[in-house]
Design a protein around this nucleic acid. Structure first.
Lengths: 154, 154
DNA sequence: GTCTATGCAAAGTATTTGCAACGTT
DNA sequence: AACGTTGCAAATACTTTGCATAGAC
């Protein structure tokens, strides 16, 4: 993970330098907290994490910063069924989709070449070239007891 | 289409009768406007259509009614990338996913057995049973000129 | 010193809810 | 008459924006 943050820091620095944006303490802290959080963090959660490192940071800064990170290509914004924006680190520009457990809320990631292939065939058949896609599978635990073990504090 | 509304009316009547809900003029009108709209209508658009038939209807009624329709199984709520809820009629309980043209906004529907199969295999591999899924492919027109022809007023 | 970033509070969106009046059964 | 429904306005949840001050370069 250390490596991932550093790569993101470099990528972000380049992006900011190119457009005369400034390096600030809050942007540093937000980036670190964001990568430390692992993935699929909501703004609320992230703000909480950031405030532990640096009191006084407000929502606006986190919102603005995450938007910046998305534009710089170091974060990806996601919208699942709960109506909040969630962000996940972009690592090596890899792509994946999500499988969400409706029992415990765990979010799994998956990537399936067959599905990807079908998608682009379907798009082509309609005269389109895939720009991006969203694919979320919501499922309930076959064995709820086992599922509970995977539960994480949202 | 005539047939579809009638089927929905029956389904809805049964649902309402079962729980002592009442038949009202606005529910009738909303159902008709909804089916007449074809599919993927936003609340705003639908309210506009309904008000042409019956002035004075407010947002709250349309929101509440569409929620009722979803619960009764005659409408399906969708959330695409524009941040508005859109609804589409449920016809014969069939399922489909969406392919959206980012050039002209046209929404195509598709259904692919191979993708469906992969999805349930992936869920099973993670100990989950698919409850529902969301699959949207966003694509840009390969031939924009041809694409424009398909454009529809939103 | 110039110009961007921050933090706060206010403003936006999209949607939901409380409540008195109304309509259905 | 009893109870669900409507329309309005207020409330809510999430996100964005205006603006004065603070900070980066």
């Amino acid at each position: 993970m250390k490596v991932a943050v550093e790569e993101a820091q470099r990528k972000l620095s380049v992006y900011m330098r190119e457009r005369g944006l400034k390096h600030t303490r809050q942007r540093d802290q937000i980036l670190e907290a964001f990568f430390a959080a692992g993935g699929h963090v909501s703004i609320d959660d992230l703000l909480g994490q950031v405030q532990e490192r640096m009191a006084g940071v407000g929502y606006a800064t986190v919102y603005r910063t995450m938007k910046l990170f998305s534009e710089a290509g170091v974060a990806h914004e996601r919208h699942f069924d709960d109506g909040q924006s969630r962000y996940e680190p972009v690592v090596d520009d890899e792509h994946h989709d999500h499988l969400i457990c409706t029992t415990c809320g765990t979010i799994f990631e998956f990537e399936d070449p067959i599905i990807e292939k079908r998608q682009s065939d379907i798009a082509t058949a309609h005269g389109l070239r895939v720009v991006h896609h969203r694919h979320e599978i919501y499922g309930s635990c076959i064995a709820p007891d086992a599922c509970r073990h995977r539960a994480r504090p949202t």
